[in-house]
Design a protein around this nucleic acid. Structure first.
Lengths: 210, 210
DNA sequence: GTCTATAGGAGGATAGAC
DNA sequence: GTCTATCCTCCTATAGAC
């Protein structure tokens, strides 16, 4: 579902070590600045400066600003993609909720990863935004992943047969997103990990098979 | 807590009827476009065109783009402010949750009101953004309002004595925000009103005094 | 692969006429 | 109160030298 290294020059031959290093540095910086100020609020020149090259130098690696954004998002997904898997398999039943709690805990250590979603998620509601497909895909995958986990937990008897799957999935994603937003707005004063953990505990108490 | 009409020229004398009308039209259009594309993504000229005057004509009423934004937000708060009051008094106990459900239902009819919060909320995380104080204030007021309502419901005996006030407040706001986001991302395919209603029902079942 | 230079455009804000 | 004209800054992208 993601296409890592899509823009690597290795497709057309071997890139130089220096080039690959520049490229990676640019992507890191791009993620940081896009997360802080969004796509529209960040200029290519700003990214270039922080990455230690000129604007034209940067655009040698990425033909356009939009291309840079999608490349940065692929780069991000590459590194985060396996977070919701254990040994290459997705966790099922309540274990999926524990994995989400782990994700929230990890996010609490990296505010800019959270902000990437909040900032770009809002901007990319516009169908013309270069990250529009990315954000839709993100929500769709996450919901499908969680729904499959709950479905399995129900069939296996770990959860009540009358667990409202879709409702639980939507509310769980909403809780995660909403708490992250409050966490950012409050200058990280609220403990979103603890809040989410309570939420998950509560759902376990409610829907676990007696 | 809000300062309506702060920028009205009536402070310095009587403005012409034509001027007031232009001004109101500009504010309406500004809210719409800022909601759709954010502060950075909207130009003064775009707003002016849709409002039926020139860019310079618009800037006669509002000295700068940032001033226009804050004026538009005040204008918005003026019209929405009483939504969480009944007869000038805030609803208390579970009635507050019903009022929130009503708000969600009303929002479902006006997508751009929802988008205003999502779009500007994300942009305004930046402390330098002209709406930064506005969004912080919004969350703070909402949380205080809901916490007071829950506190009252607990003391009055409508809710369990061991209701976790802050937790319930944060989760409720998170659920509302998160569901609204999914609603927008999914092109309004999910029924956020029904989802939120289920959430509230569930909380009532959990924390009502037996 | 990286640079300087520059084209070409958009945006915010001001000056001054009516 | 509204307009036209203009200034100045910032941005994306390209051309061409090294």
């Amino acid at each position: 579902m993601s296409f890592p290294r899509r823009y690597r020059h290795t497709l057309t031959g071997r890139a130089s070590a220096a080039g690959d290093e520049s490229r990676a540095r640019v992507l890191e910086v791009a993620l940081e600045l896009f997360a802080a100020s969004g796509f529209r609020g960040t200029s290519v020149a700003q990214i270039a400066e922080r990455a230690g090259l000129s604007q034209a130098g940067l655009l040698h690696h990425f033909p356009s600003k939009a291309t840079l954004l999608t490349a940065a998002l692929d780069y991000h997904d590459d590194r985060e993609g396996s977070l919701l898997e254990i040994d290459g398999k997705p966790p099922l039943g309540w274990a999926a909720f524990d994995a989400l709690t782990g994700l929230v805990a990890r996010n609490a250590q990296r505010p800019h990863a959270v902000r990437l979603f909040v900032t770009l998620g809002a901007e990319a509601l516009d169908p013309d935004h270069p990250a529009h497909e990315w954000i839709r895909n993100h929500y769709e995958s996450l919901a499908a992943w969680l729904a499959a986990a709950v479905e399995f937990g129900r069939e296996r008897g770990e959860m009540c047969p009358d667990t409202p799957v879709d409702q639980l999935v939507r509310l769980t994603i909403a809780a995660m997103d909403g708490l992250q937003l409050q966490w950012l707005v409050s200058d990280r004063k609220i403990d979103m990990v603890e809040e989410f953990r309570h939420y998950v505990e509560h759902q376990k108490n409610t829907w676990s098979r007696p």
